[in-house]
Design a protein around this nucleic acid. Sequence first.
RNA 1: UGGGGUGUCGCCAAGCGGUAAGGCACGGGAUUUUGAUUCCCGCAUUCGUAGGUUCAAAUCCUGCCACCCCAGCCA
Length: 548
Amino acid sequence: MKLPEATNFIEQIINEELEAGKFESRGNKLQVRFPPEPNGYLHIGHVKAMCINFGVKDKYGAKLNLRMDDTNPAKEDYEYVNSIVEAIKWLGFEYDKLVFASDYYERLYEIAEKYITDGNAYVCDLTAAEITATRGTLTEAGTPSPYRNRSVEENLKLFREMKDGKYPDGSKVLRAKIDMSSPNVNMRDPVIYRIAHVDHYRTGSKWCIYPMYDFAHPVSDAIEGITHSLCSLEFENHRPLYNWFVEKAGFPAPRPRQIEFARLNITNMLMSKRYLKKLVDEGFVRGWDDPRMPTIMGLKNRGVPPEALKKFCADVGVAKAYSVVNQAQLDSCIRDNLNDNAERAMAVINPLKLTVTNYSGEEELRFEKNPMREGSGTRNVKFTGTLYIDRDDFSLNPPPKYKRLQKGGTVRLKSAYIVRCDEVRLNADGEAEELLCTYFPETRSGSSEPCAVKAKGVIQWVDAKYGIDAEFRHYEPLLTDEQYPDQDYAERLNKDSEKVFRGKAEPYLGECGDGVPFQLIRAGYYKKCVENGLVLSEIVSLKDSFNK
RNA sequence: UGGGGUGUCGCCAAGCGGUAAGGCACGGGAUUUUGAUUCCCGCAUUCGUAGGUUCAAAUCCUGCCACCCCAGCCA
């Protein structure tokens, strides 16, 4: 058998197993799963998990189920399952089946009864606090529950009564009978089922007992015939439990194998669902898909192409070492993708009027949509000599090596002419209000004749007569998990994370369809065009090369 | 002071006994009507640390150190 080349340690393990013939009994057909809990929107961390799982799918021709791990009715909802499906679709991943852990409730219940019958589980009347107290500590063994040795008959009767709703929440649980003195705390008779008289978004009020993750997850894997259950590092301590549940449930080999990898962390990116949910619930952001959010939908609304996210995950790799990737690495992938694919456009965020005093009339100039790509086409831009440039592109006190416009200096208007600034009109505050310039007809863009006039810089511009009003929003990334609990968080978030600018844009931007990312001529910015007429853009500064 | 993991360049990360890939970041140079892009060139005599085995170790052995995870009726 010709094995695919492994690009990470997980695929290496798979190759070794395949070589050893572990999956011959199932025709070497592998199966994986992506198991989000529908209690929030997917974020960039999930993209890594998906890249790993879908990578196995593509590489080994494995089956891949999208499984909603919905065993906690209090937190889950259809809104989230829809958002998850949408995010996966946007990323371009294709799963074989959409399944729900809640589809297995009946089967899980039967397996729980089997545990009881086999003497591997018991109903425990201890309170939550008592269970915690008797679990022992990291260095001391726990003490067995007084209910640990109930008879199979009594356990079965009690468990059925639990299911039938005879007991209030918290009064009883079903526990696995493993080892109260295990050095691994997770093995000290973990809870399998809890009573919760809560409606489930899918099963309604049918159940009042719900299975716990530690039990439901491995058994769901086994039911589906999963061969590789890939999850993050924090579940390493649960692996013995995982194996215990699958084995005691009586599933034959080859049983699913849990393999753990380090989750994705990125500097300046808040990545825990709990905090993200809080930001949404308390109104710090407009929703889960707010461009400031690290959610897949937030990133989409920021104008990030899905391919850039996949490239990023591929670059970052998969390993077991705890790590925090620099955001610069993500930015680089986005820039790289946009450089190849995004069309270029002109817009000024902070307009400054520029009048060409020796120009009259109007003309159309040719503009390449994407100079990086062959055949991307051109469009015409009107030029009347009265226009706006960005305030940043003019300086009253230019620093050394300044390449853009200054009094007495020249600059090239992108795809148009070179102009010289003759006079600066100031407002009452001493700020530039209007620039009076001279243009040089012989410097018209595309002209091949040599001319004496030179300009070091090139800036973008918007014609005053033909440009449209545009609103720009500039977003700062959300703070990191560590910074989050800070008391000034909300204030800082509201004050600094979103800035709105009223500027001008060429009409072309208003014609862009919803969600089209494009790159501003001023290098280092990418943005997204939304809604016609008005340009409502999300701008993210990716590389501030202007401070050099 | 229990158990499970991890330690290779500023940040990720290959490497699996034969003499340190790659990406990001960074520095230098060339081309450029985006200070972008593109293009060269540079960037770990050293792999947490101390010993040991070997002709040969980041890779094997032993001790030590550091960091992360685990005591939810969350996932």
